[in-house]
Simulated assay, not measured.
Amino acid sequence: MKTVLHKANTRGHANHGWLDSHHTFSFASYQNPERMHFGVLRVLNDDQVAAGQGFGTHPHDNMEIISIPLEGDLEHKDSMGNVATIKEGDVQVMSAGTGIYHSEYNKNEDKEVKFLQIWVFPNTRNVEPRYDQISIRDIEKKNSFYQVLSPNADDQGVWIHQDAWFHLGKFDTGVSDSYTLKLKDNGVYVFVLEGEVEINGQKLGKRDGYGIWETESFELKSLTDSRVLLMEVPMSLGKIGR
């Protein structure tokens, strides 16, 4: 088993007033050659947007973009004609493909919105752009991991153009759960949303990241009440569409 540890306080940070963002991997003005990506996981931004503020219309192409709100409401508009609001308990995905424009705004004038912005390199380029979102309310489980993203349109959760699987888990203190990788050449990036956990003797706190690869499975123990995101992705950049 190989691992890499990214403590929360080692992330890149940018505070633009309306946006307070922490970057696990190189992004915008934060450039760290040792923190470019984890396999095909390219961006993991922990964003906090001020009341009534947001990202103006901007373009994307050939990227799978996943948004996971943690608090508040985020309004989405795009060039495909989609207008939607995502909130805590939702998962949103966009396949940018040949190119899209979109905007994201904090829908509330009285409180901030917090969400994860995640980019994954696709295994197929120049696909037709698409948008989807789900509520996890009907699929979430207590004290075990449950799937919220996969490569399969007919599987549980949203889907993307990549051999990737995302799971969420909300655990009580002292509870353990194991995770078995779907593909042997994949790795898992563990991101602790709340609380403290332990994996193979490594203790992780809130917003710590921990990459694991060259293993078939691992066990996570919750040291306090916790919430954790697992992102299983191909480790080889050869899995990126050309």
Rank of each mutant, 00 (worst) to 15 (best):
T3I: 09
H13Y: 15
H16Q: 11
D20E: 14
H22R: 14
H22N: 12
H23Y: 15
T24Y: 00
F25I: 06
H37Q: 13
H37Y: 14
F38K: 00
V40C: 12
A50I: 02
A51G: 02
G52H: 13
Q53P: 01
G56N: 15
H58Q: 08
H60N: 04
I66W: 00
I66C: 03
E71P: 00
D73F: 09
L74D: 04
H76I: 04
M80A: 08
G81C: 10
N82D: 12
A84W: 06
T85N: 07
E88D: 09
M94H: 04
Y101C: 04
K107V: 07
E109Y: 09
K111P: 01
V113N: 01
L116T: 04
I118F: 07
V120Q: 13
V120D: 14
V120H: 10
P122A: 12
P122R: 11
N123T: 13
N123S: 15
T124F: 03
R125T: 12
Y131H: 06
D132S: 14
N143H: 09
S144A: 00
Q147Y: 09
V148T: 15
D155C: 05
I160M: 15
H167E: 14
D172C: 03
T173P: 02
D177F: 00
S178E: 15
K184I: 11
D185L: 07
V190D: 04
E194S: 12
E198F: 07
K203C: 04
D208P: 03
G211K: 00
I212D: 02
E219M: 10
L220S: 01
S226T: 04
R227F: 02
L237N: 09
R242A: 10
